[in-house]
Design a binder for these strands. Structure first.
Lengths: 408, 408
DNA sequence: GAGTATTCGTTCAGGCGCCAAACATACTCG
DNA sequence: CGAGTATGTTTGGCGCCTGAACGAATACTC
């Protein structure tokens, strides 16, 4: 059977009881992240003993990640009341930055998921040089760091979202067609332009991070496998399987926009024909609705206004886009076997006009739809998903391995 | 075995040191599966202490999963020579069964991956009733069990591969379009028809199992993320990410055959239009090459003969199928970010005539191809992949949790 | 050929983490 | 106010890994 020696990273690592402790600490913290609870409740929820939970909570309190809340008011139940333990908002924060075609934005999110700071620089970035844009982004980060310090938040990491293919190993933005960028070492440039003293930063695709944002903040109960389709000028997909983002081995996954849906369709920037992006992307929708794709910040409200007014051309444009989009989504669903699809980015506000066409198209093309219906829903965070997801991705390290973070 | 009442399967489970032991036993066994080694070498490879490895090996020997081999001949190195420890072939075996359109087959595979028994019943199954077919399959299993006993192999499990959508929870074959079956409780029926005393059996899609077969036996060095595209009358895909098969949450994944590649194409059995299966499946290829799709067992050799003879019509048919197939593969690659694609099933023998068209089509449509080339290769196990994978999937349980298997 | 160096496998305390049970605490109920 | 119940902590015990020490088996050196 020769399970190939797999020279690479795939070698399974051994465990020891320190790892057990770390793992269980993460389990406890996870339980507390869902909702404040007493130690006994945590024990019941996780399957650990009260003794173990007590000891872990003690350690987490010492590390400043959780705090004891005042005794809960009596609830009419017999027995000694428990004292709730909750995440400490000051225990950690993450900074998220999004670089996108129509502007930059940044947020600070604390350990409980609250947005504590928010800033943005709107404006079309397509004309600007990468270096210039990233200097602006670095300034947003510096501001966010300052603000975090003012609020007594300890920033654990920075997440940067970009609209393009990211090489995770090299931490380089390989290509962002809609920005016209290529091979840009985003993190390096930003750090160089910043005031220094930054916590560790990571770079990822905006659709991926948006999906994480939805996973952690969206409160889509029970949906721990879903795809977030992020519509914009381009169309990306963030794939979450069993509660884990699936980036692909090289960070190049989720390129839904370049799925072929019309082999004889218009030529795409990527060189192929009939890419989904060309018949369901924002530019196509705008053109098809008789609006100018340029000056996007005005164009989207104009589109929505036209739709609200019942403009037939606009309604049909969006419906047609929905049909094409459904083809792409059906492909996703057939391949990944996922039962929930979230429409994000520009698709979120367009949802009411997309819904029918998308659902019809999906139902017709998904083989398993008869046994298990596919739910297509609008994203909850909308355009914020990527920045928030980026900020939270930094915090996930804390939640996933609290003891490791405290020790490191 | 599992503790927690687990309302939802996604809740993270706590660990204790018994789990540590089990995990480390699996790590040790995995190291030994790759190649026989001494305890000291296992320790070096895994990072565990010699003391720990010694104790685990002792336990595995007691359980009959591994054996000490004679002292290795002196190798000119100083120091006391180690005694190699290796998987014990008799430590366990798996039975694989494949039910397919053109026949049934079964194999017995032992713990080291050797095929110890092989049997098949060729013949078109499309006309036969499910019950009848499954009775034949059950007989193959009974024979395989008898043969295993004769060879002193302890059968740990049975894997059944079917060409269709499988509901993993219910262990029901939901639909197999090319067999014309629907909602068949395959395992139940087989067990009822068998002589009894069967070890636990599992049901899965043939493309999935073929992918596992390739993963474990293919020796595609380094490729622990790949897609196996299994061509036949239908077209399925088995997706392996980071060395783990991705079935989808409900076992409905990998339906590459019903990807839309030609929206205006012919109508498919599934109800949609332009499914890949319709323009790259075996029936289409045969028709397009001027051969009768019926009587398939003869048709494929005829096709190959025609290709060998340079028959233009046949060559073009396969080439065209390759182009369409490339569209589907490009979709897979864009979405999953995978750099290796294996062509299996009927595509394996057709590979020489498919290669060019597929690769060209893929390269044109995969966004990341410029940075990371996509390798399209024929599968190594060919038509055997699914049966062998099915047999091995039973053995994986042993390798993944040896102590658990021994205890249970 | 004897002594030394090196490597292998085992044995033995030591530490750590979990569990089970007992205990102290705090509240409800009658 | 006492009985009953649930929470949180303490204690003893066990299992597992580690590190060091030890015997065993081989090669190297003089």
């Amino acid at each position: 059977m020769s399970i190939a020696p797999t020279g690479s990273s795939r070698r399974p690592r051994p465990t020891d009881q320190a790892e057990v402790r770390r793992h269980n600490a993460a389990v406890v913290l996870e339980a507390l992240a869902a909702r404040p609870r007493s130690r006994a409740q945590v024990a019941a929820a996780t399957g650990l003993t009260r003794a173990t939970v007590g000891s872990i909570v003690e350690e987490l309190i010492a590390g400043g990640l959780v705090t004891e809340q005042g005794t809960r008011e009596p609830r009419g139940r017999v027995g000694r009341p428990g004292t709730d333990v909750a995440l400490d908002p000051a225990g950690g924060a993450g900074i998220g930055v999004e670089v996108n075609v129509d502007g930059l934005s940044a947020v600070v999110v604390d350990l409980v998921g609250e947005v504590r700071h928010r800033a943005s620089r709107p404006g079309d970035q397509r004309g600007r040089r990468a270096g210039e844009v990233l200097r602006s982004a670095a300034r947003l980060v510096d501001d966010a760091l300052a603000e975090s310090e003012r609020q007594g938040l300890r920033v654990r990491g920075i997440g940067v979202a970009v609209p393009g293919l990211v090489d995770l190993d090299a931490e380089v933005l390989r290509v962002a067609p809609n920005l016209g960028w290529q091979d840009v070492p985003v993190l390096e440039r930003m750090a160089k332009a910043g005031r220094g003293g930054w916590p560790p930063a990571t770079l990822d695709n905006e659709a991926n991070l948006a999906a994480l944002g939805e996973l952690w903040s969206g409160g889509h109960s029970g949906a721990d496998s879903f795809v977030l389709v992020n519509g914009d000028v381009g169309v990306g997909a963030g794939v979450v399987l069993d509660g884990r983002l699936h980036r692909g081995s090289r960070g190049f996954g989720g390129e839904l926009g370049h799925l072929t849906v019309a082999p004889d369709g218009p030529e795409c920037r990527c060189g192929a024909r009939g890419c989904l992006e060309q018949v369901a992307g924002l530019d196509w929708i705008l053109r098809s609705a008789g609006l100018e794709p340029r000056g996007r910040s005005d164009a989207v409200p104009a589109l929505l206004a036209a739709l609200d007014a019942g403009d037939e051309r606009a309604v049909r444009a969006v419906g047609d886009a929905g049909t094409s989009l459904g083809v792409g989504i059906a492909a996703l669903v057939n391949l990944f076997d996922i039962d929930t699809v979230l429409l994000g980015g520009i698709y979120a506000p367009l949802y009411p006009w997309l819904e029918k066409a998308v659902q019809a198209s999906v139902d017709r093309r998904v083989l398993s739809a008869a046994w298990a219906p596919i739910a297509v829903r609008p994203s909850r965070l909308g355009r914020d998903a990527a920045v928030v997801g980026a900020a939270q991705s930094a915090l996930r390290d804390v939640l996933a391995d609290p003891l490791g973070v405290l020790a490191g």
